[in-house]
Simulated assay, not measured.
Amino acid sequence: MASDGATYDSNETGSWLVCTACGTQFPTSDREKTKTCFICDDPRQFTPQTGQAFTTLNEIRSRAKNTWTPFKGDSRFISIVTEPKVGIGQRAILIKTPKGNVLWDCITLLDEETIAKIRGLGGLKAIVISHPHYYTTHVEWAKAFDCPVYLAKEDKEWTTQSSAHQVFVEDTELDIKIDGEPSGVKALKLGGHFPGSFVALYDEHLLIADTLVSTPSGLGSWDTDAVGVARTRPKGMNSYSFMWSIPNMIPLRPSELERMWGILKKYDFSSTHGAFLGADIVKTVPEMKQRVLESMQIQIRYMGYDEHAFLNETVG
């Protein structure tokens, strides 16, 4: 499908259909023309037990609003989440750099209040989206802020609209530039969940979306016991899982984890920030990299590959 409009027009697009399950916008108001969501029909996603349904941006705007939560201890990052939940319920993350603002991932709800809030913070210079489940209304956002939106070329087939604002990235590693100069934000194409799944890195903060899935044992705290005595984290616990399908619980194969690690191990990061509020792990560079590697090795071992060579890999 294609979208011909070059500028943002909320009146034109407010009645276009939005999948209630994943939040993806389709460029039509005709419910006879679009009856299913091909993103939710993919085995990585699902259609709810209640069946396929569509809403519109106008309907969402009438009942929901976006909330703003700065990262604890670092106000350069602001999580944007829609309440009540729309679609999958992920967050977008506004990254404030000296060169300008970059938006990591996208959410469906774009309204005048959100546009005014972001413009008050300096607008947007670029948008980077991790994978197709979060494509949502990215063309709307790109038009509203007249900025490029970076998507993986491998995942182009999952777009429902075409736009001159879309930039399909072929490279594995991309420095996001603003007015021709590096912003400091780097997009790393790790693949896995989707062939082009990205993570983003800025000043040792690794924004992971669903490319790495933060687990309860990764988010849990073992710093002290019930009476306040210091303790260490028990051995053998993972911090992340690596999934082809998160909701349908289909893991990635060992060779894919090995390939992903080959890209990620070159970079230092002291925290990870997942797709949802509260999915933040903040430690040190050595511990974070060790946690990622150990999580990959735990997954490989418990999939039955006890002799896999990757089990001997070290952070090094």
Rank of each mutant, 00 (worst) to 15 (best):
D4W: 09
D4C: 11
G5H: 13
G5C: 04
N11R: 14
T13R: 14
T28D: 11
D30R: 09
E32N: 15
E32G: 10
E32L: 06
T34M: 08
I39M: 04
T47M: 02
T50D: 13
T50A: 12
N58R: 10
R61D: 06
K65V: 02
T67F: 07
T67R: 08
W68D: 03
W68S: 05
K72W: 01
F77D: 14
I80R: 06
I80V: 14
I80L: 13
P84I: 03
K85A: 01
K85F: 00
V86P: 02
I88P: 02
I95Q: 00
I95V: 14
T97V: 05
P98M: 01
K99F: 00
K99M: 04
L109Y: 10
L110Q: 04
D111R: 10
T114P: 11
A126I: 10
V139K: 09
A142W: 09
A144E: 03
P148D: 10
A152E: 08
E154V: 01
E154G: 00
E154S: 08
W158P: 00
S162R: 07
A164K: 11
H165K: 13
V167W: 00
E173T: 12
E173K: 13
D179G: 04
D179F: 02
G180T: 07
E181S: 11
E181T: 01
P182V: 12
H193C: 12
G196V: 04
S197V: 05
F198W: 13
A200Y: 05
A200D: 03
D203Q: 08
L219Q: 12
A226R: 10
V227G: 04
R231Q: 13
R233M: 09
F242M: 10
M243C: 02
M249L: 10
M249F: 01
I250A: 09
P254D: 14
S255F: 10
E258Y: 03
G262T: 09
L264H: 08
K265T: 12
K266N: 15
F269K: 11
S270Y: 06
S271K: 09
R291H: 14
R291T: 04
R291S: 15
V292M: 12
L293I: 07
S295M: 04
S295N: 06
Q297S: 11
Q299E: 15
Q299H: 12
I300P: 02
Y302P: 02
Y302Q: 11
Y305T: 07
F310K: 07
T314S: 15
G316C: 03
